[in-house]
């Protein structure tokens, strides 16, 4: 399992690796789950109370289903850790942050300077997401 390189939360990390969505339904004590691109994120919604970690896997960076999975969970009120794992590249992490990811465990560690640049590059955004940033249209119309 790749190291968590960035984590934007203060609570204690969950040490256990995430179980599959199928196994999660059967193991009532599991608190960590791993979502593959084709998994239905909404299947987790009835169980959000006991989930402390969702790992969303990006087997290839070009498969963008994980961005929707992340937003769906956050929109449903999930407040636990949402960790991007797999082929997580420096040029995707800002998008991932906006979709609700708050931890990153890339297969290949990111260059720290490049990652800092990427996280801070865009101070303004056109769309509201659950990241809480005010979109440009909200600022225009105060």
């Amino acid at each position: 399992m790749a190291e968590v390189q960035y984590r934007f939360r203060d609570d204690e990390p969950v040490a256990d690796p995430g179980v599959t969505v199928g196994a999660f339904g059967e193991q009532s004590n599991a608190s960590a789950v791993r979502l593959e691109p084709g998994d239905e994120a909404r299947d987790l919604i009835p169980h959000l109370e006991r989930i402390r970690l969702v790992e969303v896997n990006f087997p290839v960076f070009g498969d963008g289903r994980g961005y929707s999975s992340a937003r769906i969970l956050r929109e449903a009120g999930y407040t636990g850790e949402l960790r991007a794992v797999g082929e997580v590249l420096v040029d995707q992490i800002a998008f991932m942050r906006r979709c609700g990811f708050d931890a990153f465990a890339p297969d290949v560690p990111l260059d720290p300077a490049d990652a800092d640049n990427a996280f801070g590059r865009y101070g303004e955004v056109y769309q509201p997401t659950i990241d809480g940033l005010a979109p440009i249209w909200a600022k225009r119309h105060g």
Partner: peptide, 14 residues
């Protein structure tokens, strides 16, 4: 145009 610019969810569509 503004909504679709750097849309965080839809930058890696099929």
């Amino acid at each position: 145009r503004q909504w679709s610019t750097f849309h965080p969810e839809f930058s890696f569509l099929p």
